[in-house]
Amino acid sequence: MGQPVAYFEITSTAPEKIRAFYTELFGWTAAADPSMEGYAMVDTGAGPDAISGGIGPSQAPGDTGVKIYVRVDDLEKELARAGQLGADTLALPMDLPEGYGRIAVVADPDGNPVGLWA
């Protein structure tokens, strides 16, 4: 069985503007959390089985856009495997707040960012 897409993230240098765009366009709710530097968890309103997401500020030059996070069983193993398949590591493994697991981000061979989440 394949690994599921578990999360999406939209980052922007103008996160308030982008948050307003997506919430108005799709009827989502997303309230910025000051304790998370203005990052907003998205509720798509699609029910408990929907993929969750977030909208937030850019953290580094060139990191704006949309990326998916794919659920993996072993973060370090899949990060190494991605490298063997031609990916570059963009963000080393890091712990998420409140025990939500760990993530890393790679660039696929075309340069598209893809998150790995364990």
Rank of each mutant, 00 (worst) to 15 (best):
M1N: 04
M1F: 01
G2S: 14
G2T: 11
Q3P: 08
P4R: 14
V5I: 06
F8T: 01
E9R: 12
I10R: 01
S12C: 10
T13Y: 08
A14K: 09
A14N: 05
E16C: 06
E16M: 11
K17V: 03
K17N: 02
R19C: 04
A20V: 00
F21C: 00
F21E: 02
F21K: 01
Y22D: 00
E24Y: 01
L25E: 03
L25I: 03
F26V: 01
F26R: 03
F26A: 03
G27V: 02
T29N: 04
A32E: 13
A32M: 14
D33T: 14
P34E: 07
P34F: 07
P34G: 07
P34K: 06
P34N: 06
P34A: 07
S35F: 08
M36P: 06
E37D: 15
E37Y: 11
G38E: 03
A40L: 01
A40T: 01
V42W: 05
V42L: 13
D43K: 01
G45F: 04
G45E: 05
G45D: 00
G47I: 09
G53L: 05
G53H: 02
G53N: 03
G54W: 04
I55G: 04
I55D: 03
G56D: 09
G56T: 08
G56L: 06
P57Y: 07
P57L: 10
P57A: 12
P57E: 11
Q59K: 14
A60F: 14
A60Q: 15
P61N: 07
P61Y: 08
D63V: 10
T64S: 09
T64C: 07
G65C: 11
G65L: 11
V66N: 09
V66F: 13
K67C: 11
K67G: 06
I68D: 14
I68T: 15
Y69D: 10
Y69T: 10
V70I: 09
R71E: 09
V72D: 00
V72F: 00
D73I: 12
D73E: 14
D73S: 15
D74R: 01
D74M: 02
L75K: 00
K77I: 06
K77C: 08
R81W: 02
A82T: 03
A82P: 05
G83Y: 02
Q84D: 01
G86T: 09
A87K: 07
A87I: 11
A87L: 12
A87H: 12
A87E: 11
A87G: 11
D88Y: 07
T89G: 13
T89I: 15
T89V: 15
L90F: 15
L90A: 14
A91M: 15
L92H: 13
L92I: 12
L92F: 10
P93W: 04
M94N: 11
P97C: 08
P97F: 10
E98P: 01
E98S: 08
Y100A: 15
R102N: 06
A104Q: 09
A104D: 06
A107Y: 05
A107R: 07
N112S: 15
N112F: 12
P113V: 12
V114S: 11
G115A: 02
L116E: 02
L116N: 02
W117H: 04
W117M: 02
W117F: 03
